[in-house]
Each structure stands twice: as structure tokens, then as C-alpha cells.
Design a protein around this nucleic acid. Structure first.
Lengths: 144, 144
DNA sequence: GTTTACATTTAGAATTATTCCAACTATTGA
DNA sequence: TCAATAGTTGGAATAATTCTAAATGTAAAC
């Protein structure tokens, strides 16, 4: 048994996990803390490396499991803007992603009413990609 | 040497390829034809299977090479909306992608002025994802 | 039209990212 | 406390992609 100091934020974690049929575990707590600590859209492997600093015995399979649980219970989202490993983002507010073609970094940008005119200072937008998720006509029909 | 019947469209292919420093080859011709023939955002593997019907000796490595060349010379784009294999799309006009959470199909949707109100009949939009590509402040500075 | 230089293709090996598996451990609820 | 079940672990397996080296094809110079 590992001692866990719970903060107010952890209450939210517990709620969301149990609400999704998941248990609260020290590993999930750690993985979520890693996501919140540095919001640079890390890959599963990067999360693994960071989580190991405070929890050396955690395994990569567990990190994948924890990230999956967080995504399923609405505490994080997967970000896939390029070929390569999936990245994770704990910002659940409506926002869009700025992908830098130079350093391949991903930055959160708040969704402005007039996109393009409201870019943060210094960012140079060159291409917009919009993905809409939902149900196509055939699949929407299957749900009734 | 393989005989190639060139159409007007193939002239465009040749132009774009040579413009990007690539050579015109029967394999690239075939791969591009496959993309144009059925615009269902196929994976590299699906392109490979389709290309083999008319060119049984083509290899998967070549299909990856050809798709890469097409992307680099502006004749196709990669579409990565979910974890899993990258998909390819020869529609180079401004448009966005509708991803069906049911069948995982990807549909091209023209980019409307007011998104959400202008969905094609039957499509149920549930979530919008916007990715902006360009240069972050640090990388934009490096280019001057 | 040869020759030469280099790009491309091919099959298979290697690598990367992710998932699966089976044994063990922890948590929950009776 | 005990049984049932969920979660963790390390390693094996799989999937997607890239790399490699040899053979072949293409273009451009002579």
C-alpha cells in the first residue's frame, strides 16, 4: 500500500475515474499528475519516463493503461496531428492545437471566433486542419 | 520498361513530381491513380492491395516511397485523425474531415463559413478538432 | 546512342509504437 | 476476513513504418 496525499484536484480524479467504472490507483494518480505538471503534449513513453522519477517501479504497460482510463473517463484527450506516437493533453476545454513544422511542438490555442486574426503573438499560421467527429448518416441511423 | 498511356492528368503528375525533384515512374503513376480512383482515405496497406491488382510486382516499401513523394510534391496529404495507420487523401482543396466514431470512416466536408450549420444531410457532428500548422515564435525567428 | 551518375525498386531485416498475455497484487463489497 | 474482480507487471506478440543493400531503371552528358 502506498501512502497518497489527496488534494482537492485528486477528488475530481477519483470522481471521474469511479464515474467511468475505474478504480483510483496510485499509478493513475501519478500519470494524471504528470500530464498536469507539464502541458507539452507528451507521448506515452515521455509520460513513462517522467512518472518513473517518483514511482520507479511503474511499467510502460501500466502507463498505457492509465492514459487509456483517463481518456475514457474524460480527463485527457489523445492528440494525433502527425504520423508517430500519440500524444496526450489534459486540457479538456474547447481549444485547438498549433503544430510547429519546425520543432514539431504542439501548443494549445484558444478557439477564437475569427481564427487567424487572433493568433498569439509570434505564431505564424500556415495551414488549418479541421476534423469533425460524430456519426455518418449510416451510423447515425443504427443508433435509433 | 512498362508502357504508360498518359492522360492530361498525368501531365500534372509529371510536372509536380519533377518540380519536387522526383522522377516519374510507373509505380508512382499507379499509386496516384489508386488515390484518385476511390477517395475513401485509404491506408498505405490498402493502397498497396489496390495497386497490386494492376501491378502485381509492386512492393509495400515502394508504396510508402510513392506516397511520401506524392505528399512532398503537393499531390496528396496525410490524414491522421486517430491512433493507427496514416491515411492518404488526394483532395488538395481546403476542406475538413468528418470522422465517424461508429464505422471509423473519414469523409471530406467542404469548409463552410459557419461550421456546424452547414453539415451535409444526415451527418451528426459531435466534436470539432482544429489543428493549425505553421511556425511557433522560436522557430519563426530561426528562419530569418 | 553509349556511358555514367544517381534515383528508384525490391525483399527482407530492423525499429517503433502499441497491445496482449499470464501471473501476481491490490481493492471492493459481502 | 474472504471472495470476486480490477489493476499491475514484464515480457512476448503484433502492427505500422523505416531502413538496408543489391539490382534495376532513368536522365543527362558525352
Amino acid at each position: 500500500m502506498v501512502a497518497i496525499k489527496k488534494t482537492k484536484r485528486d477528488g475530481h480524479l477519483t470522481e471521474c475515474l469511479t464515474g467511468g467504472g475505474f478504480r483510483f490507483t496510485p499509478q493513475r494518480h501519478r500519470v494524471y499528475a504528470v500530464l498536469l505538471a507539464k502541458r507539452d503534449h507528451p507521448t506515452a513513453e515521455q509520460v513513462f519516463i517522467r512518472a518513473k522519477h517518483e514511482m520507479p517501479e511503474i511499467s510502460l504497460a501500466t502507463v498505457y493503461n492509465c492514459l487509456d482510463a483517463l481518456v475514457k473517463c474524460g480527463l485527457a484527450r489523445q492528440v494525433t496531428v502527425e504520423r508517430g506516437p500519440t500524444r496526450f493533453c489534459p486540457n479538456m476545454q474547447e481549444h485547438c492545437h498549433f503544430y510547429c513544422d519546425g520543432c514539431h511542438g504542439i501548443f494549445d490555442i484558444s478557439l477564437p471566433a475569427q481564427m487567424g486574426t487572433a493568433m498569439p503573438r509570434g505564431f505564424r499560421a500556415e495551414r488549418f486542419e479541421v476534423t469533425i467527429r460524430g456519426r455518418c448518416p449510416a451510423c447515425a441511423n443504427l443508433m435509433r
